[in-house]
Write a protein that binds this DNA or RNA. Structure first.
Length: 490
RNA sequence: GUCCCCAUCGUCUAGCCCGGUCAAGGACAUCGCCCUUUCACGGCGGUAACGGGGGUUCGAAUCCCCCUGGGGACGCCA
């Protein structure tokens, strides 16, 4: 293939949706795999919905994910401008051409009138479709409408019997021209409608392949019609499967986190998000699942895209993210976790070398247990909370004498050690074992609960060495007193 | 309502184009065992799917038709 040019064209709605991110990713992978160009274009035709910083947000999320683009509003390119709001004159010019050759006409119907007739048709069980009322308006009629103060929109005139879409993913799909009503290409305020703007932009930007969500499949015949009316060759289309929520409906806010930034804010690693998204609707030829960005680029082809919709599975994302966290370099991971630790006041904003290496130890001790960085901060509470409460499932360890005996043994052994002697607590544990005669779970769980109030957490060794003798001791006393209270109440 | 797309374990999927090698493979989740003097990590094993009905064929998860189910689109939203 030659001169491959693909684009991602988001509307700046304030955040980058997970589904859009996947669309962007596949376009990017396609471009990088084939050595083509990846273009970012902002579809801000609808001023009403335009959010000022929205464009910036999208660009940031892109950068975070590691997607780079060759042409775009921020870096220019030979086919700019790359914002639709800056291309209004171009759309007008192309609409003019269609009017001149009889493939478009002015329509003076008001939104109210159109809504009314739509309802009428719907109630009669018909497909709502423009009836062509303004198709043959005389100059006098037009003037009369103008006098009324009506501003016309421009409609595309559909003449074709049938339109065939050659889809890269779905094969040949045909549409009956009869079912496509004359649609608006220029709104009455002069702005281009989506179906028109995309065509003009894709044409002028020499886009070779349009890979987008399946929800656009039924728009495609309209767009092909415009290409044809303009005497142009349409690009290759490929309609990708939708991403659904667990209830099998289109992924939306009520399914929870659906923006890329929400995952970034929780401290997911970008390569994990990229990897997971890549597997939604695509599979690698060797069935490998953990793929680096280079492997993704190398293996990506549209032939391996699936046709059926995929459910966004947070559980699997968390597993995959956990894989990346475990593989991550400790220093890097610590850097990613720092903001979360600071936010809770666990560590200072400015760190000495010593504090930094302490932070690395903390993160390292938790690395195998989390899926994303915010969880590190959750679990790190065991290093900072010296008066922990005992969670429900850990209560049972406060209720038996043999468990309490282990805790008491821990208290005594700890007291017999100096702060320097403690180290990673190995000797302490041995001492407690000797004293209590317990081993395994019955040895470890009481100690764990006495130290943290929880049944799970980092290695006891990490707790001993990072918390130190004094605080360990005060925690054990604290928990022991809680246990005492508990027994009294019974 | 009309049009369009889709249909393999609970979930993501391989296999389908080029029918037999599929008593359907992998991954997540789940269950069990092992490792670890604990939870986790890791290792091993188990449960679990070709939506239904017709064809075509010696033979169908794979090809055809119908049904059902799900999704999408029908906007002066993108």
């Amino acid at each position: 293939m030659e001169n491959i040019r693909v684009r991602f064209a988001p509307s700046p709605t304030g955040y980058l949706h997970i589904g859009n991110a996947r669309t962007a990713l596949f376009n990017w992978l396609f471009a990088r795999h084939h050595g083509g160009r990846f273009i970012l274009r902002i579809e801000d035709t609808d001023l009403d919905r335009h959010v000022a910083e929205a464009e910036e947000v999208i660009i940031q999320d892109f950068a975070w994910l590691g997607l780079d683009w060759d042409e775009g509003p921020d870096r220019g390119g030979p086919y700019g401008p790359y914002r639709q709001s800056e291309r209004i004159a171009i759309y007008k010019e192309y609409a003019r051409r269609l009017i001149d050759c009889g493939r478009a006409y002015y329509c003076y119907c008001t939104p109210q009138e159109l809504e009314h007739s739509r309802q009428m048709m719907l109630s009669r069980g018909q497909t709502p479709q423009y009836e062509g009322r303004c198709l043959h308006l005389s100059e006098d009629q037009k003037r009369a409408f103008e006098q009324e103060g009506r501003r016309p929109s421009v409609r595309f005139r559909v003449l074709e019997e049938a339109v065939v879409v050659q889809d890269l993913i779905r094969g040949q799909v045909s549409f009956d021209g009869q079912t496509i009503g004359d649609f608006i290409i220029l709104r009455s305020d002069g702005r281009a409608a989506y179906n028109f703007a995309v065509v003009v932009d894709d044409l002028l930007m020499k886009i070779s392949h349009v890979l987008r969500g399946e929800d656009h499949l039924s728009n495609t015949p309209k767009q092909i019609l415009i290409y044809q009316a303009l005497g142009a060759q349409p690009p290759q289309f490929g309609h990708m499967p939708m991403i659904l929520g667990p209830d099998r409906t289109r992924l939306s806010k009520r399914h929870g986190a659906t923006s890329v930034s929400s995952y970034r804010q929780k401290g997911y690693l970008p390569e994990a998000i990229m990897n997971y998204l890549a597997l939604l609707g695509w599979s690698s030829p060797d069935e490998k699942e953990i793929l680096s960005r280079e492997e993704l680029i190398q293996n990506f082809t549209v032939e391996r895209m699936s046709k059926s919709a995929a459910i966004f599975d947070l559980t699997k994302l968390n597993w995959m993210s956990g894989c990346y966290i475990r593989q991550a370099d400790r220093k890097r991971l610590t850097k990613e976790c720092l903001p979360f630790l600071q936010e809770r006041g666990y560590i200072d904003r400015q760190l000495t070398d010593r504090e930094m290496s302490r932070a690395e130890e903390i993160v390292g001790s938790l690395q195998a247990k989390v899926s994303y960085c915010a969880q590190v901060a959750d679990l790190a509470s065991v290093y900072f909370d010296d008066t922990p409460s005992v969670d429900q499932e850990s209560r049972i360890w406060l209720e038996t004498n043999e468990s309490i005996a282990v805790m008491q043994a821990l208290e005594e052994v700890l007291e017999s050690f100096s702060a320097e002697e403690l180290g990673d607590g190995h000797e302490v544990i041995k001492g407690v074992q000797d004293k209590s005669g317990q081993k395994g779970k019955k040895l470890y769980m009481p100690m764990r609960v006495a130290l943290t109030g929880k049944m799970s957490g980092p290695e006891l060794g990490a707790i001993f060495s990072l918390v130190g003798r004094e605080r360990c001791l005060s925690r054990v006393k604290h928990i022991l007193s809680l246990a005492e209270q508990l027994t009294k109440h019974e």
